[in-house]
């Protein structure tokens, strides 16, 4: 269970990026953090992951404050899929997936169980055939699947994804979203993702948290909350503009 209670955060010498954020997410649930660029989506994600120094007792994980968990304990609870893998070395995709098991052991290499978990993750994501290919040689969509497989191998309760379809073409966007849905259904893993694409939140279902200028504009079931009026308000668009431009996806609810 992730429980955020009155989280406010500012980078040094800056105005608050997040103001009084409160929400919770239970096991097996999915949450999309939706909002325009610069609204604080990624900051919120990184704050929960423990990458940022936030005020004590504002983020609770399974009932205990974030700051009381060790790094290894956090890794068992939350896995992270960045927008792009940061390696400067051409690791094999299979090796990268195996790195998802890093926090499980204190010393030495990986054991049979780690290899089995990595193989299962590769198979579930459907990229076993890419295991021996260097990561830089893969397409954008394949790379994102490798990152998802690594998070899956980590065997955590929650997988955090920072704009998982950013920079991908339409077919790769569909591939990534379908893979997320498959993992959610088969493994009951919770996804918490940031996106600025409302239709992706609707597709994945679950909850949506709409962020505007670091504050919560709305939080609730994605398929109920997302409609053209809400999206226009979120992105500060002139009312009726989406309809005028023919940009309302069929999946949006009625305002």
């Amino acid at each position: 269970m992730i429980d955020i209670r009155g989280l406010t955060f500012a980078y040094p010498h800056s105005r608050p990026v997040l103001t009084d954020i409160s929400f919770h997410l239970g096991p097996g649930q999915t949450l999309s953090i939706l909002g325009p660029n610069g609204c604080g989506k990624t900051t919120l994600l990184k704050a929960i992951l423990g990458f940022l120094a936030v005020k004590a007792k504002t983020i609770f994980l399974n009932g205990a404050p974030l700051e009381t968990h060790s790094r290894a304990a956090l890794a068992k609870l939350m896995a992270y899929v960045p927008q792009a893998n940061g390696s400067v070395f051409p690791y094999l995709s299979g090796d990268l997936v195996l790195m998802g098991r890093t926090g499980r052991r204190k010393w030495g290499g990986f054991d049979q169980a780690d290899h089995r978990k990595a193989q299962e993750a590769l198979e579930l994501v459907g990229i076993s055939h890419l295991a021996q290919r260097p990561y830089p040689e893969l397409s954008g969509g394949q790379r994102q699947l490798v990152n998802i497989a690594r998070a899956l191998a980590q065997d955590s309760q929650f997988i955090f994804m920072d704009e998982p379809t950013s920079g991908l073409d339409l077919s790769n966007q569909a591939l990534v979203l379908q893979t997320m849905e498959k993992i959610h259904q088969e493994k009951k893993v919770s996804f918490l993702m940031t996106t600025h694409r409302p239709e992706q939140s609707v597709y994945l279902g679950g909850e949506v948290l709409m962020l505007k200028r670091g504050q919560i504009l709305g939080w609730g079931p994605a398929r109920q909350l997302i409609n053209s009026a809400a999206v226009e308000d979120l992105y500060s668009l002139e009312p009726g503009l989406l309809n005028k431009l023919g940009l309302i996806p069929a999946c949006f609810g009625q305002a």
Binding site: L49, Y80, P82, S87, T102
Partner: peptide
């Protein structure tokens, strides 16, 4: 070698 954030998310201080 993957960077600070990825290393932290993998359980490394």
């Amino acid at each position: 070698s993957l960077g600070d954030e990825e290393a932290m998310s993998l359980g490394v201080d």
